[in-house]
Computed example of a mutant assay.
Amino acid sequence: MKRTILRRMLLACLLILAASALTFALVAAAPGNVAALIAERAAGPGADAEMITKIGNELGLHDPLPIRYGRWLASALAGDFGISLRTGKPISQEFAARIPMTAALLAGGGVLAFILSITLGIAGAVSNGGVIDRFLHAFSLIGASTPNFFVAALLVIVFSVMLGWVPTFGTSGLTSWLLPWVTIALFPASVLSRVVRVNLQEAMSRPFATTGFAKGYTRTQVLLREALPNIAIPFLTTFGAQFTLMIIGSIVVETVFALRGVGAFFIEAIRFRDFIGMQSVLLLFVVFFVMVNFIVDMICIVADPRMRRARGA
């Protein structure tokens, strides 16, 4: 078991290293000159070539790409992500102020997606081809096909502008989080509800379900007592994948609802060609992707004895 965990940790570190190198290379290859941007910010349009060259030498922008990457990665591991070209503040300070906002968005959306997917999946399985099952099937297809920005705009128009029930933006209270949470949770909840529904249907054809019926259980009791625990592993695996994708959805949601999170900072960095900020946010996204999948993998290994034996073999 310990060997399995260590092997997975090593693989996660290698994935982060490879993804960070690719991210750094892509951002470095983007059109634009960081030294010129800094010179223009300091001296305005009057920045000359000598000043640009001097700034480039000070920042090591003329060094080979592997050396620049190693220097940047070493600083990032020490908590120094550089200075934002847009705000002039250390990016570590920007992260300290913005990560709690994004974490609250992802946590609320993740809990809502988890609850909705289980509830809708079980309701569809209980109906089993009935009106409710067909309705939920159509709802999940629509939810999985509708872009986040359209959902956000529709929710704001209906519940904020027309009904006036919740604020349109900001974080003035718990009600101000409802629309962002629903927006970011709709897509994963729709996908996961179908995973629950399909796996429950498959589980109902297994011998343990037949045994449950032989004991006199109703269909709902067999679903909850026998089938539901047996779909935990595929559900958790899919939930982990969908939860990591929510960080991409946060970019849109934070922009629409004026939440000062990491996603909004990333959009601002792109608009103002803040290459240092973009590299730092992408590195943060990479770490988030890998760590969530690592945690889900560990949970599945602990929860499923078959996977423990397979990993330990």
Rank of each mutant, 00 (worst) to 15 (best):
G60I: 04
R8H: 12
L236F: 15
F150S: 13
R86Q: 02
H137I: 13
T4V: 15
F114I: 04
F289V: 13
V296C: 02
G56C: 07
G46D: 14
A30L: 11
A78I: 06
F149K: 05
V126D: 13
R86W: 01
G143C: 06
R309V: 08
A39C: 04
N293Q: 13
L85V: 10
I38S: 04
S160W: 06
A227D: 00
V195W: 05
A49D: 12
I157C: 09
R219G: 09
R308D: 11
S140T: 10
A269P: 04
L73P: 01
I184R: 00
K2L: 15
F272M: 03
A313N: 01
L85N: 01
G130V: 08
E254W: 06
A78M: 15
L106V: 08
L245Y: 14
L105E: 03
I267R: 09
R7Q: 13
R3T: 15
G108E: 09
T220W: 07
G124W: 09
T218M: 02
I67D: 07
A47K: 00
P90Y: 08
P31C: 04
L22I: 07
F187N: 04
L14V: 12
I142K: 05
V195M: 05
G143M: 03
L14P: 02
T238F: 14
I115L: 14
L200S: 07
I67L: 15
A313G: 12
V27N: 08
L192C: 07
T102N: 02
V292C: 05
I115S: 04
V287M: 06
L17M: 10
R7K: 14
V161G: 06
N199V: 03
E40L: 13
P31Q: 02
E40T: 15
R271T: 01
L15S: 14
V252Y: 05
S205K: 14
T238P: 05
A303S: 09
F114V: 05
D80K: 12
T238C: 03
P100S: 05
F139G: 04
G56Y: 06
T255M: 13
